[in-house]
Write a protein that binds this DNA or RNA. Structure first.
Lengths: 116, 116
DNA sequence: TTTACATATTCCCATATTGGAATATAATAT
DNA sequence: ATATTATATTCCAATATGGGAATATGTAAA
């Protein structure tokens, strides 16, 4: 078995840095392909191909206007990533909470010393 | 150019569902390889290989005890993913915020009607 | 209808993958 | 020293990648 296709899920689609960049730009505003080509400085086929992957996973939606195709972010499709990663946040914050606790205890002690 | 190696960054490492599962288990407690084999029901080489990838990106740390190797999650290494994805959350929450606003306005109107 | 513009698709290559099976390494116990 | 346990590594196959170049498709303007 090979690696899962980039179109398998948002995790795989977003593993590619260029696609993350694309989503960041589209997070700001709906854009046509040529606008993205200009903003990002990539070749047109490159932009189209990455958009194709993002569309297949539902991370962007396409809207045809004249000869242009306007792409916009579908942020909800990022939710699986958000939901998966956020629970871990408390693990790397735990130490700071403990540090806070420690500092607070020290403050309390200081106060007690002063009032004694 | 091919796809970036799985060891390139946390995004690529975590694109593989099995590795996410592994991290979830290690989020609970430090574990030896044989414990993971049992908990997950995978073959031992499979567990070792995925752990190898996770170790290379710094998502897990290894500790040798006797002939066992204990692996534990290094949650901080997930921060880049957390930091990248969380800003998007407001985009899919925006509609609910607007709904909240709407409901609040309705409540206000009700109050005004009553007090009038 | 021909021309110009906007975008998508195809063909190519080098590279890396996951999983399975077999094997190697390392540490402890007998 | 040898057997046993715990883990890592190697070899294999099938598969998919991303980028470049060239080309196809689709839409509107002249």
């Amino acid at each position: 078995m090979a690696r899962a296709p980039t179109t398998f899920d948002p995790f795989n689609a977003v593993a590619e840095p260029k696609r993350r960049q694309l989503l960041e730009v589209l997070g700001t505003s709906e854009s046509a392909v040529n606008e993205l080509v200009e903003k990002l400085g990539w070749t047109q086929p490159m932009v189209s191909k990455h958009l194709g992957v993002l569309k297949q996973v539902g991370l962007v939606n396409e809207r045809r206007v004249g000869r242009q195709r306007l792409y916009r972010l579908n942020a909800e499709a990022l939710k699986p990533i958000y939901d998966w990663v956020t629970p871990f946040e408390q693990l790397w914050n735990a130490r700071y909470e403990r540090l806070d606790q420690l500092l607070q205890n020290l403050q309390e002690e200081k106060k007690n010393v002063r009032t004694k």
